[in-house]
C-alpha cells in the first residue's frame, strides 16, 4: 500500500513536470518558450529559463518585481503564493515541485547509509526563512545599481533548480551561451553537485533547509484547505507516523507542521487509521456521517 502511494506520487510529480515543461522544441534548439502562458506562476520551484517551461517560477517572479525598482510589494506574485498556499500548503512540495521530484529520485539511489536529517537539523531548518527574507526580498530590493534595479539574489547565487533545469540544458544546446561561462556558473554548479550528493544520503536537504518557496507554503499548512487531522480516539501514540516520516515530523502531535510536505506516508502507515485529510472529511460515509470528524482535530 505504501509502495503504491509512493509510485502514484512519483507519477503525479513526473506528469506535472511534463505538463508544465512541455515545450520540447526549447530543449532541442536551446531557446525558451515566449508565449503568453508565462503570465501565470506555477506552484513549484520551476525556473522560467528552463527551455521547456510554460509558466513562471513564483520565486523568480517575486524577485523580478521587487528588483525592478518599480514596486515595493508584489500584489501579483504574493497573490499566487497565497492562492497555492491556501489551497494546499506544502502539498505543492510533495507532489508538484520539479526539484522535489529530483531529490526524491536521488534519495532512491542505493548509495550511502540513508538518513533523514543533516546534523544540526533543529537549527538548520530555520535557514530557509533567512534565505526567503534576505535573498528573495531584502537584497533584491535594497542593493540596486545606478539604473535603480537590483539583482535576483536567490536565483543568481543559490537556486540549484535554475542551474539544473535552466542552465545545464541551455548551455548544452546553445554554444553562444557556453562561451559566456564564468566563476558564477562554477559556483552554482558546485552548489548543485553538493545538493545532489547530499540528497542521495539525506532526504530532501534543499527543501528542509534552503527552499524559500517551501518556507512560504509551510506557513499556510495549518490553515490550508488541504490539512491533516488526527482522530485522538483512534491514535495509540505509537509514534510510527514519525518513524516513517522522512521529514521527521511527529504527526500525532503536529499534523499540520510547517515542515510537512503532505507525502501521505504517515496516513498509509498508521495502524489504527487515525490520520485523515480534510479531503476525506468531505466524503460522506454511509450511516456514520463524516467519519474523520468524530475524534476532533489535533493541530
Amino acid at each position: 500500500m505504501a509502495k503504491k502511494r509512493t509510485t502514484l506520487r512519483l507519477w503525479v510529480q513526473a506528469g506535472w513536470f511534463a505538463l508544465t515543461n512541455g515545450y520540447a522544441k526549447g530543449f532541442l534548439e536551446g531557446k525558451i518558450y515566449k508565449g503568453a502562458t508565462k503570465f501565470v506562476c506555477v506552484p513549484g520551484l520551476n525556473c522560467y529559463s528552463c527551455p521547456g517551461a510554460l509558466g513562471s517560477c513564483p520565486i523568480g517572479s517575486l524577485q523580478a518585481v521587487l528588483d525592478s525598482g518599480k514596486f515595493r510589494f508584489s500584489c501579483y506574485v504574493f497573490g499566487f503564493l497565497m492562492l497555492f498556499g491556501a489551497l494546499m500548503g506544502r502539498f505543492v512540495c510533495g507532489w508538484l515541485c520539479p526539484f522535489g521530484l529530483v531529490q526524491d529520485l536521488l534519495h532512491k539511489i542505493p548509495l550511502f547509509h540513508k538518513k533523514k536529517n543533516l546534523p544540526g537539523h533543529q537549527w538548520l531548518k530555520y535557514l530557509k526563512y533567512v534565505v526567503l527574507v534576505l535573498f528573495v526580498i531584502l537584497l533584491p530590493m535594497t542593493v540596486v545599481g545606478i539604473t535603480g534595479m537590483g539583482d535576483p539574489w536567490f536565483c543568481k547565487y543559490i537556486c540549484p533548480s535554475g542551474t539544473l533545469f535552466g542552465g545545464v540544458p541551455l548551455l548544452l544546446s546553445n554554444p553562444t551561451l557556453r562561451s559566456a561561462i564564468g566563476w558564477l556558473f562554477s559556483w552554482k554548479m558546485f552548489l548543485l553537485v553538493l545538493i545532489v550528493v547530499l540528497s542521495i544520503k539525506y532526504y530532501r536537504p534543499f527543501c528542509k533547509y534552503l527552499c524559500p518557496l517551501g518556507a512560504v507554503y509551510g506557513l499556510f499548512n495549518p490553515v490550508a484547505l488541504y490539512r491533516l487531522t488526527v482522530d485522538q480516539d483512534k491514535c495509540v501514540h505509537c509514534k510510527g507516523c514519525q518513524q516513517v516520516c522522512k521529514m521527521d515530523i511527529p504527526v500525532w502531535e503536529k499534523p499540520n507542521s510547517v515542515e510537512c510536505i503532505r507525502c501521505g506516508d504517515c496516513k498509509t502507515f498508521c495502524p489504527t487509521g487515525a490520520i485523515h485529510s480534510t479531503l476525506e472529511q468531505l466524503r460522506v460515509k454511509p450511516y456514520g456521517g463524516i467519519e474523520a470528524e468524530k475524534g476532533g482535530e489535533n493541530k
Partner: peptide
C-alpha cells in the same frame, strides 16, 4: 519570463 534570465542560469 520570456527572456533568458542570465542570472538564473548562472
Amino acid at each position: 519570463a520570456i527572456n533568458i534570465c542570465m542570472e538564473c542560469i548562472g
